[in-house]
């Protein structure tokens, strides 16, 4: 059974020049699998993630022919309805842990807060749950990290804490928006491994949003390529290099390689792509 069914999702924002559509009719049918959404800035990939989480407030407008999460119609769901879902059933990991963690609350208490909001647990059980989840994101000394403030941990550790916070309630769907782009190359793989491991073990659905084709191809089962608010390509991760759309092909070709010998990199012909879609 599909976890998330989206048909013809549209996100619009009013501007001085009239209404701008940033997501133009996107459809997803997601099971308990790992879906990657790739695109460059302005492609609407992040807006898609935010729309699914109900995080687009006025003046933005979200419409869809169908927007169902596990049988629940998200269209017209009230803010308090969304709040019950967010965290407990679906959660989102953002780009930079620095901006997503409250700087004046200890890490352990921040993770525990989500538990307190959604399930009434005695303090001791809550603490145990927090310790468990910190261990699950491979933090070796959860006792110490529990008492730290967000500024006292590194970027990679911060992102693990974010993930811990997002999975503590064992949601069914996780949306990760550029979860590693603020991190150093050396810790990116670890963070993705942890995420991947949790998703597999707990049977969650994952939507990984990124600009990085290689990364998405490596960590997902299926890939959507977005360009200018539309999905231009949908394929299994393994078939990415056999992609057919000129945008995807152009994007793949324009990335320099480690054994690069070309003297010029091919550049996207945006006019041709614009005309093609």
């Amino acid at each position: 059974m599909s976890l998330l069914r989206v048909e013809n999702l549209r996100v619009r924002f009013p501007t001085d020049q009239g209404e701008v559509e940033v997501v133009k009719g996107l459809s997803i049918d997601l099971g308990r699998e790992r879906l990657g959404i790739v695109g460059e800035s302005g492609s609407g990939k992040s807006m898609t993630g935010r729309a699914l989480m109900g995080l687009i407030g006025p003046p933005g407008r979200v419409t869809a022919d169908r927007l169902e999460f596990d049988g629940i119609d998200l269209r017209g769901l009230s803010e308090s309805g969304f709040r019950k879902l967010r965290g407990a059933r679906m959660s989102m990991v953002m780009q930079d842990p620095k901006f997503s963690l409250n700087p004046v609350i200890r890490i352990g208490e921040q993770i525990g807060e989500a538990l307190q909001f959604h399930q009434r647990l005695p303090a001791r059980a809550r603490r145990r749950a927090v310790m468990e989840v910190l261990e699950a994101v491979r933090i070796n000394d959860p006792e110490r990290v529990y008492r730290l403030y967000p500024h006292e941990v590194s970027g990679g550790m911060g992102q693990r804490v974010m993930i811990a916070m997002m999975v503590v309630l064992q949601p069914d769907l996780m949306i990760a928006d550029e979860p590693t782009s603020a991190l150093d190359v050396s810790v990116r793989a670890t963070v993705l491994e942890i995420l991947d491991d949790l998703v597999r073990r707990r049977g969650m659905g994952l939507i990984l949003i990124s600009h990085d084709l290689d990364m998405v191809a490596r960590w997902c089962d299926r890939i959507l390529v977005m360009y200018a608010g539309k999905v231009v390509e949908e394929c299994a991760a393994g078939d990415l290099h056999a992609a057919t759309h000129p945008y995807t092909r152009g994007l793949l070709a324009s990335v320099p390689q480690l054994n690069e010998t070309r003297t010029r990199l091919p550049v996207l012909d945006r006019d041709a792509i614009g005309a093609g879609t």
Binding site: E40, S41, H211, L213, G250, L251, S254, V255, P256, L265, P266, V267, L268
Partner: peptide, 9 residues
Amino acid sequence: DVSVQAEIL
């Protein structure tokens, strides 16, 4: 973005 990176490079 990667496609822009190619132009700048």
